[in-house]
Nucleic acid binder design. Structure first.
Length: 645
RNA sequence: GCCUCCAUAGCUCAGCUGGUAGAGCAACUGACUUGUAAUCAGUAGGUCGUUGGUUCGAUUCCGACUGGGGGCUCCA
């Protein structure tokens, strides 16, 4: 007998070789039916794999993230089986579970897979589930594994096998399909009740741009048909929040083929929104001791040779602009830091002057690969809420911490609760990608880790994600469709001060080198607005709303009074419009609701007589009558609450 | 940049297997003078993204280009 410790702490005895499934059966039949895998001493196993020694066991179902990923991993095998059955002689790359479903990278040879083929594959998958084929685990020697895939002619599996140590290799079989796989898997294919192929895409083998591009098939499966339906409905809902769709509908921004791809045009309403955000940040930065500066949109080639950006990005940038007579070269500025370094150098600095915090809403231009452009989140021209803090080495941590506070304050005011702080360090395997000495890097990385720790940020650490000049702390948020984007960023840089020979006089009357901190709480206004739109589904907080009010006269007779009300609100810096069309009030209200106008002020006979307005709030409905003064007070108190300054 | 899908009126879309286009909304005109999510009627609006080719004939089939979507690679 062996002792099995369950998650509730209870210890039960089972015969040696008991399986997760059998343990579940001993608890309840329902649980046994739903067990997808078992976590044995922290490792996820097949629920059918015998447990030979005392162990801590957690039974995993669809409700556990690891249960889901096991389910989807098995589904990837099922899809591969279906595809192999329909298109023989295909070769398989890898097929892992992902956040929502799974994919399989497949070399289909000449065959081009399209949406039209999806139905057939889905049908085949569901057909195969009816057979309830068990997923069978088979430990196998490396030689035999190589033999099998050589015979099958799957060069990708052979490529994978190259890196696997003999003795730890396992195959999994289900039905007529055999895959190199370390598992674990669900008991049998019968658990899968609904399958949907989502899309196909190209993906380079091993993520290497130089190797062959395989067809990546994305799909998702569920243990119940109903869950698939719900998932698809949620996706539809998310699409409604897409900033590209709302940006067009609410007339916030647009793109023009003639202007150029990735170059956003900010429409009047979008500009109003953006300017309010800028104003918010300006205020916060003044309070935090920043000095605004302005620098030009271009800079001479020499500036970027000095900064090192020319060497690193010169060939991949927008190519330089040349002056007609002297043939001097200027680059569109891809970042503001070199300009700010030159501002630092305009006069000798004392240790007493530091930290010097130079802030600029700097518009920068970067050549992004055409396939990478995406709405406002990835563009070729954008404005950073940039600043560079020049400080003494002993001030780095304090300054860094203050910036974290500013970022958190910003996110909180805008209602972003769901973000992750990512500590981006350099790739220890590939140090040649970065500039600067090991010693400086280690100091910088340490400063970030400590500051993040002191602020109790929940962080993830990513190796190889650092900027080429220094490590950074990035604040990541998700868009409506779950894609991750970097918003705020804070970066320590010991390198640029070196390259620009920045100095200050210390208390010892010696020359010292300052440290730079690059930071942008929004990151870029464009990306921030994109994520903000999706976050609030276009229903902006009142202080940001491009159309805060609409004055809606019941008929032409009340246009004068409506104008009076409107003028009064304008004086109070409240933005909106009057709807003077010859339409019924129901129509005016509907149009204002669709435009997501925060407040509708309806004026007719009784409002005019009593000098009041009838207030209707977007998405909520009629709030009743009040005087204009009372409305203004109500309005301002809401702004004070949400704006938080 | 690469793979793949897509491109019809200002917007959302219809137009089966080739015979030069239609709806709703928006716009404009007129009537209605309106009380909390769409008043009625009329008018106008498109070299069917661009460009080659196949064809007697192409919005429809094929190629290229441009732009967009999804992904890969990249992201100072």
């Amino acid at each position: 007998m062996i002792k099995i410790t369950l998650p509730d702490g209870s210890i039960r005895e089972f015969p040696k070789g008991v399986t997760g499934y059998e343990i579940a059966s001993s608890i309840s039949e329902g649980l046994a039916r739903n067990v997808l895998a078992a976590k044995v001493n922290g490792e996820v196993w097949d629920s059918t794999r015998p447990i030979e020694n005392d162990a801590t066991v957690q039974l995993l179902t669809w409700n556990d993230p690891e249960g889901k990923s096991t389910f989807w991993h098995s589904s990837a095998h099922l899809m591969a089986e279906a595809i192999e059955a329909l298109y023989p002689n295909v070769q398989f790359g890898i097929g892992p579970p992902i956040e929502n479903g799974f994919y399989y990278d497949i070399d289909l040879g000449e065959k081009q897979l399209s949406q039209d083929d999806f139905a057939a594959i889905e049908k085949k998958m569901l057909e195969l589930t009816k057979e309830k084929s068990a997923f069978q685990r088979q430990p196998i020697s490396k030689a035999e594994a190589i033999e099998y895939f050589t015979q099958k002619g799957d060069k990708y599996k052979l490529d994978l096998l190259k890196d696997l140590p003999d003795g730890s290799i396992t195959f999994y079989h289900q039905g007529n399909f055999t895959d190199l796989c370390k598992g674990p898997h669900i008991p049998n294919t019968g658990f899968i009740k609904a399958a949907k192929l989502m899309n196909v895409a190209g993906a380079y083998w091993r993520g290497d741009e130089k190797s062959k591009q395989l067809t990546r098939v994305y799909a998702i499966t569920f243990p119940k048909q109903k869950e698939l339906t719900e998932y698809l409905e949620r996706l539809e809902e998310a699409k409604k929040r897409d900033h590209r769709k709302l940006g067009k509908e609410l007339e916030l921004f647009a793109f023009s083929e003639k202007v150029g791809m990735g170059l956003p045009l900010w429409l009047p309403k979008g500009t109003l929104l953006r300017e309010r955000l800028e104003q918010f940040m300006r205020k916060a930065q003044v309070k935090a001791g920043y000095s605004p500066v302005v620098t030009p949109h271009i800079g001479s080639k020499e500036l970027y040779v000095t900064s090192g950006h020319y060497e690193k990005y010169g060939a991949d940038s927008f190519q330089p602009i040349r002056t007609p007579n002297e043939n001097e070269e200027f680059f569109l500025k891809p970042m503001n830091c070199p300009h700010h370094c030159e501002i630092y150098k305009t006069k000798p600095r004392s240790y007493r002057d530091l930290p010097l915090r130079l802030a600029e809403f700097g518009t920068v231009y970067r050549y992004e690969q055409s396939g990478e452009l995406h709405g406002l989140t990835r563009v070729r021209g954008f404005t950073q809420d940039d600043a560079h803090i020049f400080c003494r080495p002993d001030q780095v941590k304090e300054e860094f911490t203050k910036v974290i506070d500013l970022v958190i304050y910003t996110f909180k005011t805008l209602g972003f609760e769901d973000y992750t702080a990512q500590i981006s360090l350099r790739d220890p395997e590939n140090k040649a990608k970065y500039i600067g000495s090991d010693e400086l890097w280690e100091k910088a990385e340490q400063a970030i880790i400590e500051a993040a720790h002191e602020k109790n940020l929940t962080t993830v650490t990513e190796l190889g994600e650092a900027a080429f000049y220094g490590p950074k702390l990035d604040f990541m948020v998700r868009d409506a469709l779950g894609r991750k984007w970097q918003l705020g960023t804070i970066q320590v840089d010991y390198n640029l001060p070196e390259r620009f020979q920045l100095e200050y006089n210390g208390s010892d009357n010696e020359k010292h080198r300052p440290v730079m901190i690059h930071r942008a709480p929004f990151g870029s206004l464009e990306r921030f607005v994109a994520v903000l739109i999706e976050h609030c589904a276009g229903n902006f907080p009142l202080w940001l709303s491009p159309e805060q009010i609409a004055v809606l006269p019941i008929s032409e007779k009340y246009h004068d009074y409506a104008q009076q009300v409107y003028d009064r609100l304008m004086q109070e810096d409240i933005r909106g419009y009057i709807d003077n069309r010859d339409e019924k009030i129901g129509r005016k209200i509907r149009d204002a609701e669709v435009k997501k106008v925060s407040y509708m002020l309806i004026v007719g006979e009784k409002e005019q007589e009593n000098e009041i307005v009838s207030v209707r709030k977007h998405g909520e409905g009629d709030l009743g009558n009040m005087t204009v003064d009372l409305f203004v007070n109500h309005f301002k108190s809401i702004i004070a609450e949400t704006f938080g300054q």
